[in-house]
């Protein structure tokens, strides 16, 4: 199986600054995206700190598995998923401490979504309303639960999903990185199958492009970079009200046939 990915970020058609950030590590198969907030340029600072800290924490842990976890280990999750959650908590500390030491950046914060593939086990972790979706055999599902006021109201049956989509309170988060000394991180894991596509995105995509439109773009563009470009284009065509960032990861089937098999046997690319 071959893991291929593509990513793109854009300021959109309305905002002056792009407060979104993303980083990927192709060797670790680690993908991280963050949407910053705060006055002046501090949103950009927060999201950049968030993605850097997560990547750095996981890289250090890859070299030194004994690296101490930030926060408590959850027994029901694998080592990798616990590590990823730890990386997000570390990012929270970094942003919070930076903001506390600098009056211009007081109150800055960020959402974060992270996906990490180890063999075929996908670890995910998130805080805020950026999302991860999975496309598998034609069904397209969000696999994170937004930490926002409207999402909580939908979950408790007080608001319908349709009302949530047009609510004026969509931008109120119930959790974010960097706004408090400690944060609760949601983490989960699952087994991926050949052909699966994973999408990480900021709300600038999901508020401008419907789920069926996103699914159709992912299905018709097997090249993740082309899919990422097309998603951002469509968000802008539909108004581009916010910064938009996407990372697309695809588990492409291994090339089959005699030649591919021989190449694998004799130590070619695999």
């Amino acid at each position: 199986m071959q893991i291929i990915s593509g990513a793109r970020t854009d300021v959109g058609r309305v905002r002056k600054n792009n407060e979104d950030s993303y980083r990927t590590d192709a060797d670790l198969h680690l993908y991280v995206l963050s949407d910053g907030m705060g006055g002046e340029a501090s949103g950009e600072v927060a999201s950049a700190l968030a993605v850097e800290t997560v990547i750095e924490h996981c890289r250090l842990a890859a070299k030194n598995p004994g690296l101490e976890l930030v926060g408590e280990r959850k027994e029901e999750l694998s080592d990798a998923t616990n590590r990823l959650a730890s990386a997000l908590r570390s990012a929270n500390q970094t942003i919070f401490e930076t903001a506390s030491g600098n009056t211009d950046q007081k109150g800055m914060g960020a959402t974060i979504v992270a996906a990490w593939l180890n063999e075929r086990r996908l670890s995910i972790a998130h805080v805020g309303d950026s999302r991860i979706y999975m496309l598998r055999a034609g069904s397209f599902d969000q696999i994170t639960a937004d930490h926002s006021l409207v999402a909580d109201l939908v979950r408790s049956g007080i608001m319908t999903p349709q009302q949530a989509e047009v609510s004026e309170q969509q931008s109120i988060l119930t959790r974010a990185l960097g706004t408090k000394a400690k944060v609760e991180v949601d983490a989960d894991e699952q087994l991926l199958l050949e052909g699966d596509t994973i999408l990480l995105c900021s709300d600038g995509l999901t508020r401008m492009v419907t789920d069926p439109e996103i699914a159709s773009i992912l299905e018709t563009n097997p090249d993740p970079q082309k899919a990422a470009d097309r998603l951002v284009e469509l968000a802008n065509e539909n108004g581009g009200h916010d910064n938009v960032t996407v990372i697309v990861v695809h588990l492409a089937p291994e090339a089959r046939g005699l030649w591919a098999t021989l190449r694998r046997w004799f130590g070619g690319d695999s």
Binding site: G109, E168, S171, L173
Partner: peptide, 11 residues
Amino acid sequence: VPKVQETMVLD
């Protein structure tokens, strides 16, 4: 709850 343009955290 005010109409919110910028993202904010419930506080």
